[in-house]
Write a protein that binds this DNA or RNA. Structure first.
Lengths: 158, 158
DNA sequence: CTTTGACACTTAACATGTTAAATAATAATC
DNA sequence: GATTATTATTTAACATGTTAAGTGTCAAAG
């Protein structure tokens, strides 16, 4: 008799932004995990690959920011992806501190294949929630992120 | 002229639920991290402690679900919290497979102190975003989580 | 009562999160 | 140009995420 996956009472802790955001993200990611597992790529590696793909070439700092991974994690991820032949790392000739990352042909091929599946999954989610609801939610999330990140403690007019 | 921390172009990857939810959560948690660091408790440990506090006594499975941590993580977290004297673990006498977790007095005291700071931070967030916006967002997130988690594949009535 | 299966953790192994410290290269200053 | 500060990345150490396999307990059959 499966009692449903979440039968804990919705107490105060559950009605908070950190938990709600975490649970919502889990619900979404659950649908992508099988695909990621198929191509043997972790969530974080996938985000990194996607950002590199979109940027053609990108340095590690911007990559870390866009893919939402910390620098130490990115170091390990890039090492792993490079050893798998999916990306290449090179030094910026103008600033040799910077690492420039590019997708290899193998990496591009992998993303092309998986991208189709990913798009399909996203379409399924859209079909279930409606594109409008998703757009509204994305807007609200973006606004909140922006409002919280902005450090305009001053006039606080807004 | 601070160019703001995130000046990467809002490309397609950024406009997706997984990334938007991740970034939003980061923006929120950023405000709580100093407090957590003060009391030397990680995010996950904090969630576990909060859930235990609300439940008085709770078994590990429900605890893991409510605190959004996986069973293997919970095992380590409980071991750590127990060694710090914040919680106690006991066996359910009716079902000795189950671990029952309770807060110690020290744990209760810690949560009482930190809870005040936490509430204050949450109030600051509410002041910045408005309680209504947060409530609406929580509703939207809960609905989405529910809609995505529900396995309503037509007939298949559970 | 024994066997089988299901359930509740626990352990193991690897990847990542997180913080602090270390390296290397650039930029600023004297 | 040498010193200092800053920036970009890496390394280290510990905690957690994630999956798979292992262990002990309960429950249903035989």
């Amino acid at each position: 008799m499966t009692r449903s996956r979440d039968d804990f009472p919705l107490s105060a802790t559950q009605r908070t932004l950190p938990i709600a955001l975490l649970r919502a993200r889990e619900a979404v990611m659950e649908r992508f995990r099988p695909m990621l597992r198929d191509i043997d790529v972790t969530e974080q590696q996938w985000r990194v690959l996607r950002v590199v793909q979109e940027a053609e070439e990108i340095d590690a700092t911007q990559l870390a920011r866009a893919a939402c991974v910390l620098a130490p994690s990115l170091t390990r991820i890039l090492k792993s992806l490079e050893s798998r032949g999916l990306i290449t790392q090179g030094r910026d000739k103008n600033d040799r501190r910077r690492t420039l990352v590019r997708l290899t042909e193998a990496g591009d091929a992998l993303l092309h294949e998986a991208g189709l599946v990913s798009a399909k999954i996203y379409a399924e989610i859209e079909a279930k929630l409606s594109a409008e609801r998703i757009a509204d939610l994305l807007d609200a999330l973006e606004r909140m992120t922006d409002d919280l990140t902005r450090q305009d403690d001053a006039g606080n007019g807004d």
